[in-house]
Structures are given as structure tokens and as C-alpha cells.
């Protein structure tokens, strides 16, 4: 309900956005699009689509803010073909254009992991991407500062600084990173990638900065929720506080931004 009220305020006084610098990004994502969500219970939104932000939204000028912590919640109990998310990811970032690499060398931002309990025979699958840790080991070990965490919690590689040492790949407990082994052509405009650099899921940082959800979230049909973990009123925070969620390898105390249900 709070979301709708915020939205109304935004419509009435556009200028208030500019005054309230710190919450603009949040308002935009969650405020202006509340009606588009699919609700499963009163007051609880399962997912919502975000309108594309125009360049006039001032947070584009402000840059990433530490007031926000972007995160994702993956509901593995949903009957979803996770490969749809992988395909959407590949399309968004132009992955899969390696010609000479072996399959195990090719870049993947999302892996679909199948797990089976041999005792009971229960099996399930879950998508595993960069978990966007709060204390990211890849950032700790990077010798050049290429592996970095934005103020809003997104962990990504600055390819301008990456020397391809692959220390981060060794450090990552989630095996989330890939190394490009060959000369690439035909990259997408928004995801430059090339030989000799390590890369991984960047939570579709180009889309987030433009007010869109990550590609996998859009393709998941509501099985992945994206939102601000710092905002207790955001759908993702509400669901997490009500129903809980698990982080993979929570024992490492890295506090990943990606949470799971049903694992």
C-alpha cells in the first residue's frame, strides 16, 4: 500500500523527486509500476514489470547509490524451465559466440544446476549465477581492482582493468565466473566482452540503470523476483521477511544478494 501512496506523490509533484534524491531510483522501480504486478496474496506482489526510465530521470546522473542493495529471490518450487532464463541471458549479453572454445570453456553467466537426493530420489534444479556477495571474495583477491562492487551491491568486472589472471575464478565459491579464451566479434552494444578477460553475471547492470529488470527475471515468469533488499517495503524484502529464503553456502558468511526458496 505504501508503494501506491509513493506513486501518487510522484505523479503530483515531479519536483519532489529531485529533492528526495536518495529514494528516487527505488521509487521509480517500485513506485511507478505497482499496478503491473501479479499478486498472489493481499498486499503481496510476486513480480512486477518496470517501465523504461527516460534519460530525464535524474538518478542516471547520480549514479549507483549505496542506499540501494539490489538482490534477487529465486523460487525453485515453481515449475519453470530455467533454460528460458539462460537463453534470455545469452541473448541480452550476446553470449555463445565462441567458435573455437570447448564447451567447458564457453562463457556462462547462469548455470542450471541439477541436484538429486540419492536416498529419497527427490531431484530439483536451480539457476546459479553470480551471487553478488556483500563481502565478495573475487573483489578481495583482484590484484588490479578490476573485480569490483558497485555501491548498490552489484559485483562486476571492469574489463578496462582486468588482466585475465583468473584469481577471482579461483576465489569464487559459486563458480560463477568465466574466462574468454578467444577473439570475439559481434558483441552486443551494452555488453562489451573480449579475449583475455574474466566475466560474469552483472545483474544486467545496463538494464537496471535504465529502469528495467534483469533479463532472467523478465524471462522467469515470476519465479525470480528482483528488488531492493535495503527497502523493507519492497516486494522482495516483504516476501523474504515473511517466508524466509536461503543463501547458497550461507556458512561462508559472504551475504550474497541472491536468495533462494525451496532449496
Amino acid at each position: 500500500m505504501t508503494i501506491n501512496i509513493e506513486n501518487k506523490n510522484n505523479d503530483e509533484t515531479v519536483n519532489s523527486l529531485n529533492k528526495d534524491a536518495e529514494s528516487s531510483r527505488r521509487n521509480f522501480i517500485f513506485g511507478s509500476v505497482a499496478a503491473a504486478g501479479l499478486s498472489v496474496a493481499p498486499g503481496m506482489m510476486l513480480y512486477q514489470t518496470a517501465n523504461a526510465r527516460s534519460l530525464s530521470d535524474f538518478s542516471l546522473k547520480e549514479g549507483a547509490s549505496s542506499k540501494v542493495r539490489w538482490g534477487m529471490l529465486v523460487d525453485t518450487t515453481k515449475d519453470v524451465d530455467w533454460n528460458k532464463c539462460v537463453d534470455a541471458c545469452n541473448k541480452e549479453h550476446g553470449l555463445g559466440n565462441e567458435k573455437n572454445s570447448r564447451d567447458d570453456q564457453k562463457t556462462q553467466y547462469i548455470r542450471v544446476v541439477d541436484v538429486k537426493n540419492k536416498g529419497t530420489g527427490y531431484s530439483m534444479s536451480l539457476p546459479v549465477m553470480c551471487q553478488h556477495c556483500e563481502s565478495a571474495p573475487c573483489v578481495d583477491v583482484c590484484p588490479t581492482g578490476a573485480s569490483m562492487k558497485r555501491p548498490d551491491g552489484i559485483v562486476l568486472v571492469d574489463r578496462h582493468r582486468c588482466i585475465g589472471c583468473r584469481y577471482c575464478m579461483m576465489a569464487c565459491p559459486y563458480k560463477a565466473r568465466s574466462f574468454v579464451h578467444e577473439v570475439l566479434t559481434d558483441q552486443t552494444e551494452n555488453t562489451p566482452r573480449g579475449k583475455g578477460c574474466v566475466e560474469s553475471c552483472n545483474m544486467c547492470v545496463n538494464r537496471i540503470d535504465n529502469g528495467q529488470e534483469p533479463a532472467c527475471v523478465e524471462a522467469s515468469g515470476g519465479a525470480i523476483i528482483f528488488g531492493d533488499l535495503n527497502d523493507s517495503e519492497s516486494p522482495i524484502s516483504k516476501i523474504l521477511s515473511k517466508h524466509g529464503g536461503k543463501q547458497i553456502r550461507a556458512d561462508l558468511k559472504l551475504n550474497p544478494g541472491v536468495h533462494y526458496q525451496g532449496i
Binding site: 534519460l55 530525464s56 542516471l60 546522473k61 547520480e62 549514479g63 549507483a64 569490483m148 558497485r150 555501491p151 548498490d152 562486476l156 571492469d158 578496462h160 547492470v205 540503470d209 535504465n210
Partner: peptide, 16 residues
């Protein structure tokens, strides 16, 4: 490139 990638700034003050 530093502004965009590391700081998430995608536009100038004049919105361009």
C-alpha cells in the same frame, strides 16, 4: 568509461 562502469552514471547534468 570510469563514470559509467564504476559509478553507474549514465547521463550528464543536461540529461544527454
Amino acid at each position: 568509461r570510469i563514470q559509467t562502469l564504476r559509478e553507474g552514471v549514465r547521463a550528464k547534468a543536461d540529461d544527454k
